[in-house]
Each structure stands twice: as C-alpha cells, then as structure tokens.
Design a protein around this nucleic acid. Structure first.
Length: 553
RNA sequence: GCCGGAGUAGCUCAGGUGGUUAGAGCGUCGGAAUCAUAAUCCGCAGGUCGGGGGUUCAAGUCCCUCCUCCGGUACCA
C-alpha cells in the first residue's frame, strides 16, 4: 500500500465545526464524511490511523451569537458542542476523539505555541486605530459596523464591504458609522496587537506547495493566487473576552486571535486523546515525526487556513509535521441554492437523522460529493438513491440470496462444488474491484470508490440472473448450492467494501452472515471466508422504501 | 474591482498532457425473466459540451472576450 514505505502512521483531521449553530449536510459533505470514509478505509487496510475533530469555540461570532440568544458564550458553545457531537455520532462518524477548543489543554497548547514564536522574536507589535463602542465596552469587528458608503452613498454599507457598489472598505472610512448590535456610534481608539510575519514565509510556502504534485489543482491554484498578490503579515491577537488570553502580563483584555489558535485544536485534541489513554506524550509520535501522513479534510472556504496560514505557523514553530495533503471539497447546496445557517436554508443533521436511515443519507451525500465543483442535494434524490440503488440493487441482492439460502439450504451456507466459468469470473472480479476501490480511496476519489463498489453489486445481480438458481434448484441442487455459496461470499465482501460509506449496513450484514466484526479487513474482502455448513441468521430488510409522502415537505 | 473555481444528455455528475461515432448512474420507453423489498437483467432513445470569436489537419479540452453561479479578498471563521 502507498503509505507503507514513507509513512508509518496517518493523522486525519476534519475542519473543526464552529460551535455557534447546528451542523448541517454542507459540513458533512465538505469535510466530515470524506474524512470518515477515508479513515474507515485506512483502518480496514490495517494502517495506524487516528481521526481527530471537535468544536471551534472562540471568536467574535460566538460572542455575537451569545448576545443574540441572550446567554453567555460558554452556554452557546456547550449547547452546540454537545448537539453536534451527538449528531455526528448518529451519522456514524468514527472520530477517535471529538473534543473542543475551550479546554485547559488547548489553552496551554495555544499559549505555548505563542510563547515559542515570541521567544524566537518572530512576532512584532503594531498599534492601529479601531472603532470602539463605549456603550458595549468593546472593539467592533469590521462586519459589526455599518454606515454610509463613502463611494456610493449606500446607507447600510458594512465595515468590510459595501454590498451595494462592491467596494472593499475599512470601517474607518464609513460615514456615520454605527454598531450593528446596539446602534450606537463608535469612537476611534488605538489598540496594539501582535503580528505574525506571514510575508517572511512566502518563499518557503511556495517551495512547499510547488512540491505537492498530487494535490487538487483548485487548492494549488488558489494558493498561487495568494502568492501572486503577495502574503501580508497578519494580526494574531484581538481585544475580546472570549478566547485564549495572552500568556504574559500587561495585555489584559487581549486574546489570541481565533484563526491563529483554532488549528492548534488539532494538536491539543490529539493530546487529549492520548492523555485519556494514560500517555499524553504519545501525541508527539503523530505531530512531531516526519513519517506521519497528516491529511486535512475541509471545505473550500477553509483552504487559506490549512494550506497557507497553518503551514506557515508550523514552519515558524519548527518542530511539527506539515500536511501531506489538503483534499478540499467544494460546497453542497440544497435544492439549487446554498446552505446557510443565517438564512435557515439548510438540512440540519439533527432533523433528519431519526427520520431516515443514516446510511442512506451517507450514501446520498457521498455519491454526489462536491469533489470538483459545487453540487446539489435534492430530497427526491435521497429517495431515488435509497429506493433505486440501495434498496433495489444492494438490498435486493442480499435479500434474494438470503431468502434462497433459507428456503432451500436450511439457512446455512451450501457447499461449493466445481466452479463453472461464470463463477470464476465473478470471483475474479471481486479481486479486481477490491484493488481498484482501494486505489480510489488512497487517492481521495470517494465518488469513484463508491460507484465502483456499486458496480460490483450490479455484477452480482447479473450473476444471479444469468445463473438462474431458481431454475437450477429443481434439477441440480448441488450446482444451485455452488451458486448460492458464491452469492453469500459476495454478501460478505459487500459487508467489508461498503463499510467506509455504509457502516451501519455493514454491521447488519455481518450479523446476518453470523460473521465476527474482527473479520472486517480489506484483505478479507477478496477471500471466500464463509465455510460450508456455516449457519446464517435470518435476513433483515437493509433499506426500507422511502415513500413520496415522506419527502414532500 | 482583484484572485481562484464552475457552467456537459430530462436529472445528478465523469471527462491528465487537444485526436476516430462526447461517457456513467438515475429517470423515460421497449423487451426478457419471475428467486427477491414489483426488487432484477438486456436494449433503444436523449447533448450544436453557457454565448461569441480565434489558433489547429483536429477543440468539451488551448487562447481572447462576454454572461451567470460559488469561494476568497487579509478584522467572520
């Protein structure tokens, strides 16, 4: 396998979920499901892999949500952290740990990181004018100031941009500025912040990105676009209450800026994972060794942080591993327009996970994953994929096989006699599919992996049709036994090959086959593991039909 | 405005370095089959590849231009 030479272990992350709202299918499609499929594949392949994720809990937007809902930031993040953690669990996401950034471990990790750079003299301070609300006693982020656009005179222009004429603005340029929260008029006040010298790292970053020949072109080109304009230094502190305080005296009311501190969550959460196992220092095996393959899964809105900012921070730090790949996805829209928390146009996991088979949701999303461009999720698509593909092709094959075994072979695996050519062909195609699917997973081609897996099931149905066991059983029971034996072996293969995308179905199938979960390994997918005489459990329906009435909403 | 991505069959999507009749799944229609959750299998039909211009023996693919959508644009993360 590809990582057996250079890499000894794999560290997979999904973009941390910002804890100011419920997670929706857009998050799942962009950064969570592809990572989960990849990780599940890696486990089956026998790799040493860990999968870390969690809630991103600091920053202005959390404070604003708190004000809006009339509760404290802590209450906000508690509410959404646990809600989202549960939602992911219900969808079968197999994080080794799903934690959060408001922990002591994270605070210490972020502060140590800051101190490390500070002691190397990499950071510098700069004083700038900002808008300050006397009433709220806080500095206002650009987007929380509105006023009259100096260019076109639009009266509702935001501090960062005028929606009317499209001009990029600074809040100091606005005429008649006011706070979007209270409406009061802010004053100009000076504040001193630490800056990270991003510009210094541009040559190293360019060299690094240019060496990545197997990255997606959209990610590479996006970065090159930033290089072309020239990277600028960036503030890494903010005047805010809700965040990680600076690890030094004399900076009261200043916290580490969330863009700088959040990605360190990957590190602190890994620490937590091993601390819980009694050896926190083991995190270093993953974060401080060159033979770790670090893979960040995320949506396109996050490319800048994972392909430029965070790598630069890691270069500055000097003792951490850089990403081996950043397979960014585009967005999954809903019924033709983008999903958005603020507009309420989204499918929240919590609202659908009880209504539908989680595997059907996973399948519908994975088979239309936005790997190359934005895609659309349609309810009728979920229904069609569930009924016409999962139910009709996979469910039906398993069901017709099990019913046959029950009816004619006493619910046990019949003996396989001499194989006919048609038997040998399907057995051989198990092997070739197993290896081609593996290579799709290795290369982050999840849609291809999935359609290839379904193709094997299509072949299986064709095999069933062509061998006509319902006729053969009347003339030649032994031959029929061979056919059903092959079909049952195929079911066992499906339990393994579908595990990355349909984990619940995979388990169910194994139960029906009366096979131990320990058998779940990629190497076993191409083996004919079911011995003759092996007793089967009664079949269950794998995918119930979704009726028209259920999706009309 | 600037940087990056996208626009391909009724629907959802694939189509490194330009090369014979542009692919798949689903849907539609026709046929076969009847073991099975009326589920399967075979076949037909369906596209002037966003518009316009150019390079070339040859363009979905390269160049120019225009339109539309998405992301970023450094203080949302």
């Amino acid at each position: 396998m590809e990582n057996s030479g250079k890499y000894r272990r794999i560290l997979v992350t999904s973009a941390l979920t910002y804890a100011n709202g419920d997670t929706h299918l857009g998050h799942i499609a962009g950064s969570i499901l592809p990572a989960d499929m990849y990780v599940r594949y890696c486990r089956l392949a026998g790799y040493d892999v860990i999968y870390v994720c969690g809630s991103d809990e600091y920053g202005t937007a959390i404070e604003m949500s708190a004000i809006k809902e009339g509760i404290s930031p802590k209450e906000i993040v508690d509410k959404y952290h646990f809600a989202n953690k549960k939602a992911y669990e219900q969808l079968g996401m197999s994080f080794d740990i799903y934690s959060r950034t408001s922990t002591e471990t994270h605070k210490k990790t972020a502060q140590d990181f800051f101190t490390n750079l500070y002691n190397k003299d990499l950071l510098y301070q700069k004083t700038e004018k900002q808008l300050y609300s006397e009433k709220e006693k806080r500095f206002l982020a650009d987007r929380f100031v509105i006023g009259t656009c100096p260019v076109c005179g639009f009266e509702e222009a935001r501090g960062d941009e005028c929606e009317n004429c499209g001009s990029a603005l600074s809040p100091l340029e606005l005429k008649y500025p006011r706070s979007t929260i209270t409406g009061d008029t802010p004053v100009v006040k000076e504040s001193t912040h630490f800056y990270f010298p991003l510009s210094k790292f541009q040559p190293k970053l360019e060299e690094w990105i240019n060496s990545k020949k197997d990255w997606k072109p959209n990610v590479v080109n996006y970065c090159k676009g930033w290089f072309k304009t020239g990277l600028q230094d960036r503030a890494i502190t903010r005047d805010l209450d809700w965040g990680v305080p600076l690890p030094m005296d004399g900076f009261d009311g200043k916290v580490i800026y969330v863009w700088f501190e959040a990605p360190m969550g990957y590190i602190s959460i890994t620490k937590e994972l091993f601390a819980a196992k009694g050896n926190e220092d083991k995190y270093k095996d993953y974060w401080c060794s060159d033979d770790t393959k670090l893979v960040h899964f995320l949506g396109k809105d996050n490319i800048i942080f994972h392909a430029i900012f965070f790598p630069a921070m890691i270069m500055a730090h000097g003792n951490l591993v850089l990403a081996e790949n950043v397979p960014a996805n585009e967005f999954m829209n809903l019924e033709g327009s983008k999903q958005s928390k603020s507009k309420g146009h989204a499918i929240y996991v919590k609202d659908v996970v009880d209504k539908y088979n989680p595997d059907s949701l996973r399948y519908a999303i994975a088979s239309n994953m936005p790997e190359n461009k934005d895609t659309d999720f349609y309810w009728k698509d979920l229904q069609a994929k569930n009924n016409n593909e999962l139910g009709a092709i996979l469910g039906n094959f398993v069901n017709r096989t099990f019913v046959f075994a029950g009816k004619y072979f006493d619910g046990a695996v019949p003996e396989a006699g001499a194989y006919a050519e048609i038997d040998i062909n399907i057995i051989n195609s198990i092997k070739s599919y197993t290896s081609s699917i593996a290579s799709y997973y290795e290369n982050y081609k999840f849609k291809d992996a999935l359609s290839e897996t379904m193709n094997l099931v299509r072949d299986a149905n064709k095999y069933f049709n062509d061998t006509e066991p319902w006729k053969v059983v009347k003339e030649d029971t032994a031959r029929c036994g061979t056919i059903i034996n092959v079909c049952l072996q195929l079911c066992n293969t499906f339990a393994i090959l579908f595990n990355p995308v349909l984990p619940f179905t995979s388990e169910k199938l194994l139960r029906m086959l009366n096979m131990p979960v320990e058998n779940l390994s990629w190497a076993n997918a191409e083996k004919l593991l079911l011995p003759a005489g092996h007793k089967l459990n009664p079949p269950e329906i794998l995918f119930r039909k979704i009726e028209d009435s259920e999706i009309e909403q």
